[in-house]
Design a protein around this nucleic acid. Structure first.
Lengths: 242, 242
DNA sequence: TCAGTAGCGTTACGACTATTAACAAACACG
DNA sequence: CGTGTTTGTTAATAGTCGTAACGCTACTGA
């Protein structure tokens, strides 16, 4: 067994390309229909293949779905990280703004992928407990926490506008800190989750069209105020460069 | 034509009951599978009928979906309104808290219905531009704005912690005010949307399981702080009765 | 050079779904 | 009682997912 497969990079490359094309076709189809759903038959048609051929690359629809979810996490994480790194690291406030804007922008641009990873879990898809998607999720969300860490390290993170932190949350924060190099104080931990929820709420409502009755400029202004408020409340410094 | 149908309340009652049963069965199925999807065949099976029989009550799957969406809006609106009215109307702060808790509670209890109305628009369903769902949506969301109106009328609404309101938003608020008896100042309008977004973000993330790594007590404490912060920022008075 | 083989794509098939059409029973009402 | 509406059934069409069995192609190794 295993006669070849030692030196067949050509085949592997073609295979990877086909896999990418399948995923892209599925995505395109989801974008066109505006939903989180696809038919193997449609993908095959668009690629000028017959449906059973796809089973050479994905065991079933769920496996393709899992791959798309993992990719979506990666893409969101990448988009956010890129936006953050495009801002000088001595202006944490501006970095925060950039992160928030990237999150919103990605959600608007890719509402289907957004729903895929942050909406109601999709039909037939059960997140593998320790699989690649969970890991990807952690990576994507850590973009936000890393920003708070930077702020702490630079000593620019003010006290969040919070009442006393509930002991249960403090304990939860402590548990989370075990895996981190720099410790996050409980009130920062809470502020972080507050920030994420606040940011996510706007992004989700807008991405799904529930703000469509407000015109573009109004939504932009609204989001700006929304995020600045969240930053203030979380103790994030104001951006130096507006 | 129209021989009977003038006095056949018996038939109509049975028909309404069947319609309700269909919707309930669909909901149950969605709850069991944890997704926003159902098969006509499954519903029919559960009701011990044959699939084509359902077409006597709904023209197709989309029509049933539309009905479910309208019902979900009604249910959310009802739940929120009930929670609000259960609190004495001289304690606006407590009413606000009750409304927020009801929103969250409903989202957690009925994640599928929540996704149905506030998630990514569902496959094959196009919201009728002027149909019953739009109206239902307005009614449900007006629960929140009516609370702000009450606060204004009683003069207990403090200034929201906002920078200057963008003229575009002011214009948008003015446009919205045309349909209202009492005028809502622009900054309140903005505070309202900020509140909704903030509240919705937490509710959605939690309902879809993205806070599952925090235990129940922690989430409760988190939500409490989250909402109190939102209230403070929006200028809502603190609740008298905690 | 040439047989062997792994990978890819095809057609053929079974089980299932949404939806329509044609038909039968139950019911309301003159 | 007879007539027509309502509600359910079975039969049939078309499209889905997924499996099985079959070629074709291209690379491998003697």
């Amino acid at each position: 067994m295993s006669t070849s497969s030692r030196s067949a990079p050509r085949r592997e490359k073609a295979r990877a390309a086909t896999i990418d094309e399948i995923k892209l076709t599925a995505l395109t189809h989801m974008r066109e229909t505006g939903t989180v759903d696809f038919r193997f038959a449609d993908i095959a048609r668009a690629m000028e293949m017959t449906p059973p051929a796809l089973y050479r690359y994905f065991a079933d629809r769920d496996e393709l779905l899992s791959a798309l979810i993992a990719d979506a996490y990666d893409d969101l994480g990448r988009a956010v990280a890129e936006a953050r790194d495009a801002v000088p690291d001595d202006d944490i406030g501006a970095r925060f703004l950039a992160v928030a804007r990237a999150y919103r922008h990605w959600a608007r641009q890719e509402p289907q992928q957004f729903a895929l990873i942050l909406g109601l879990p999709v039909a037939g898809y059960a997140a593998p407990a320790d699989g690649p998607t969970t890991e990807a999720a952690q990576r994507a969300m850590s973009q936000l926490s890393s920003l708070f860490l930077q702020a702490i390290e630079r000593g620019v993170l003010g006290p969040p506008r919070l009442r006393d932190v509930h002991p249960v949350i403090a304990e939860c924060a402590a548990q989370k800190n075990q895996h981190l190099a720099t410790a996050i104080p409980p009130e920062t931990f809470q502020a972080m989750l507050h920030t994420w929820s606040t940011l996510h709420g706007f992004a989700a409502l807008e991405a799904y069209g529930h703000f469509n009755w407000i015109d573009e400029a109004g939504r932009d202004a609204l989001f700006d105020g929304h995020v600045r408020l969240a930053a203030e409340v979380a103790g994030m410094p104001a951006p130096k460069a507006p």
